[in-house]
Design a protein around this nucleic acid. Sequence first.
RNA 1: CGGGGCGUGGCGCAGUCCGGUAGCGCACCUGGUUUGGGACCAGGGAGUCGGAGGUUCGAAUCCUCUCGCCCCGACCA
Length: 573
Amino acid sequence: MKISRYILPTLKEDPSDATVTSHRLMVRAGLIRKESAGMYIYLPLGLKVLQKVTAIVREEMNRSGALEFLMPEMTSAELWKESGRWNTMGPEMFRIKDRNSMEYALAPTHEEAFTSAIRSLISSYRDLPLNAYQINTKFRDEIRPRFGVMRSKEFIMKDAYSFDMDEQGLDESYQTMRKTYRTIFKRCSLETIPVEADTGAMGGSQSEEFMVASEIGEEVLLICESCGYKANQEKAEFRHTAVENKEPEEPILEVDTPDVRTIDDLTAFFKCGAERFLKSIIYTADGEHVMAVVPGNREINEHKLKNHLRAAELELASDSAVEDVTGAPVGFAGPVTEKKIRMVFDISVKDIANGITGANKRDTHFTGVNPGRDFTVTEEADITIAEEGDPCPQCGKAMITRKGIEVGHIFKLGYKYSKSMSLTVLDKNGKAVNPIMGCYGIGVNRTMAAIVEQHHDEKGIVWPMSIAPFQVLITGIAKSEEEIASVDEIYSMVRDAGIEVLCDDRKVSPGFKFADAELIGIPVRITVGKNYFNNNELEIKMRRTGVSENVTKENLLSRIREIIAEEMDIIDN
RNA sequence: CGGGGCGUGGCGCAGUCCGGUAGCGCACCUGGUUUGGGACCAGGGAGUCGGAGGUUCGAAUCCUCUCGCCCCGACCA
């Protein structure tokens, strides 16, 4: 391909709306253009990269034995009603109607669609195990799309769904996908960290997310460098050490605390550490009010709380609801009360001695509050967020935190969909049983953006050979007609050898071409200029290392093939 | 949805406070000179100043409403 016949709108200046490196570089290098908020156009160069990523995903999925499908993007409301998600999916799902008022969803995911499709295709245990997948667009009405294609309203996902006869089979399918994912990301030259993930309240027993460590990541990971425990903060546990030698109990006292509501206010007022307070927050879980009580120095992990409560919806109670429930304005709630409200205590609450808590009365707190004596720990669970430095749940060593971009997710679904949608096969005894399912997703566009995050320098993108839009860029610096013909001859030779090559034949200055070459990041650059016209020397320069070498025209092809093989080798090993 | 910011040729911005009929850089077109690290000269095309309404002799500028976009928080690949 010649650039003179290509659309390659590179930009010298950063787009004003791009805040992260991958977004900035993808726009500047002419890979993508914004169509509107959360929707992007892939220009020819960007599409090539996307196709390379897609090809790797497809190859590895096929190698794992999975079968590729292509599902409709418009999924009928009936499907979603069967599983119950028509109501629970909420505003994130785009819903549309046809002229006959038939309702559809623009698929945000395809569990229902695949379960339904497979239901009509299989009937015997002999058909299992089965892993069905597709590479297709997903639509999600994101609250806030951002970071370019990293989080968009429309994106390409590889989604796979496994069907097995039993848990052991599911585990095998899950482990196969786990391995496949590691291979896929490795082939994309993307370093990922698999972490334990939240499985949610709706069932599902095991789940891992594949994270790319990055400062712009929207996920927080807790990592134990000692034993290798890795988990998403939503899920991460930490070891609670029981306090020995508690202080002697003091009497409970009512204290006037005018307008002292927050933990910061309280520590200033009482001149003591935040851990002494019993932070009591009122939530609404599926319509029921719940008081969550945690030590004042810790944050509530709403995922853990939601899972513990087995709630579908969990949100902070409104100010008026708090007043109804506690009899006091927000800021004065506490577990010492006659009121009937469900309370969930973090497992470390029972160790607090002579604590301070709201008195459920305006401008009033209790001091000297002791669990067991002043209130009963009725319901106990781990409901706080693990933080940097907390002891690892496995080995007790201090954990560190990292930010991560989630590029893949594998999940043991269990029977949720096979049961709710009546997917059955006959087992060996002729009895109808529900297969057990797993689901496995990779964000393809996000993977592409994550690769740019991991492979760039101050001049631009540095594509790994495996997903580069072209393997080789020829930069022609020709003046006369003869020289132009000469560049063209080199280009034809490389192209005809089956090498993916882009030729910069534009009539612009060399510096301009070199700067663009670095911006778009094609791994190998061949400069055809005066050294070639005069001395038969072609310069090969590697984008990744900056190392250059000279070859003759005769040796060019063999040397390029060698370099491509070497670069692919680096990725594989 | 809450908080903050921004909408001016394709892109990046100035002009807005203090009203006088739109400008700069990049990109684009023509001609010429250059060209192994983002060349130069000359000429040129391109903007309902996000939209609607209002105030005014006169609005990019002031007022009202509205739409869009970006950033910070709760969802997710």
